[in-house]
Amino acid sequence: MKLIHNKLVRDKIPEIINQASKECKIKILNDDKYSNELKKKLCEEAKEVLETKSKQELIGEISDVLEIIDALKEVYKIDDQELIKAKNSKANKNGAFKEKIFLEYVIDNNNE
């Protein structure tokens, strides 16, 4: 049975598949496609965070997200200080997520 995946996978996945006596077809992406697939993979992993049911599952999924973030940082040559600066700037402007605020709706009386 042939299962189509068409997605970015970790470096050792083809080896793991072969060790399980299965076959796979891979290709090496160019930089532009790699960058785009990393972004798609980040969304995929973020969805998996939502589906976790235990702390251990959450840790595993967050570690996947961090792995992809590290790869994106490398591709775009982003250092930790740039991220910290942007994070702090957004927190100063819009706040963080410490107060557990859930926005239900906004009424805009100016656009009626």
Score class of each variant (00 low, 15 high):
11 D>I: 01
11 D>A: 03
11 D>H: 05
12 K>L: 14
12 K>Y: 10
13 I>H: 01
14 P>S: 03
15 E>A: 06
15 E>G: 00
16 I>F: 09
21 S>Q: 15
22 K>A: 03
22 K>C: 08
22 K>G: 09
22 K>I: 00
23 E>I: 11
23 E>V: 09
26 I>N: 03
28 I>N: 03
28 I>H: 10
29 L>D: 10
29 L>E: 04
29 L>F: 00
30 N>A: 01
31 D>R: 15
32 D>A: 12
33 K>S: 13
33 K>C: 11
34 Y>N: 03
35 S>N: 12
35 S>A: 10
36 N>W: 15
36 N>V: 07
37 E>L: 06
39 K>H: 08
41 K>R: 03
41 K>P: 12
41 K>H: 02
42 L>H: 06
42 L>P: 00
42 L>Y: 05
42 L>R: 00
46 A>E: 06
47 K>D: 15
48 E>Q: 10
48 E>S: 10
48 E>Y: 06
48 E>H: 02
49 V>T: 00
50 L>A: 09
50 L>G: 07
50 L>I: 13
53 K>S: 10
53 K>D: 12
53 K>P: 01
53 K>M: 06
53 K>G: 12
53 K>C: 08
54 S>F: 00
54 S>D: 02
55 K>Q: 05
56 Q>R: 14
57 E>M: 02
58 L>V: 00
59 I>Y: 13
61 E>C: 00
61 E>Q: 01
62 I>Q: 01
63 S>W: 00
63 S>T: 02
63 S>E: 13
64 D>P: 01
65 V>R: 05
65 V>W: 14
66 L>H: 05
68 I>W: 01
68 I>L: 00
70 D>I: 03
71 A>E: 07
72 L>N: 01
72 L>P: 01
73 K>E: 06
73 K>L: 11
74 E>W: 13
74 E>V: 08
74 E>L: 12
74 E>M: 08
75 V>N: 12
77 K>Y: 05
77 K>I: 08
79 D>G: 03
80 D>W: 08
81 Q>I: 11
84 I>L: 10
85 K>D: 14
86 A>L: 15
86 A>E: 11
86 A>V: 14
87 K>I: 04
90 K>I: 02
90 K>T: 04
91 A>K: 15
93 K>T: 14
94 N>Q: 11
94 N>P: 03
96 A>V: 07
96 A>T: 08
97 F>M: 10
97 F>A: 05
97 F>V: 07
97 F>D: 02
98 K>Y: 13
98 K>E: 11
99 E>L: 12
99 E>R: 15
100 K>C: 05
100 K>V: 04
101 I>R: 15
101 I>F: 15
103 L>P: 14
103 L>R: 13
104 E>S: 09
104 E>N: 15
105 Y>R: 12
105 Y>H: 08
106 V>P: 01
106 V>C: 04
108 D>V: 12
109 N>E: 07
109 N>P: 12
110 N>P: 06
111 N>H: 04
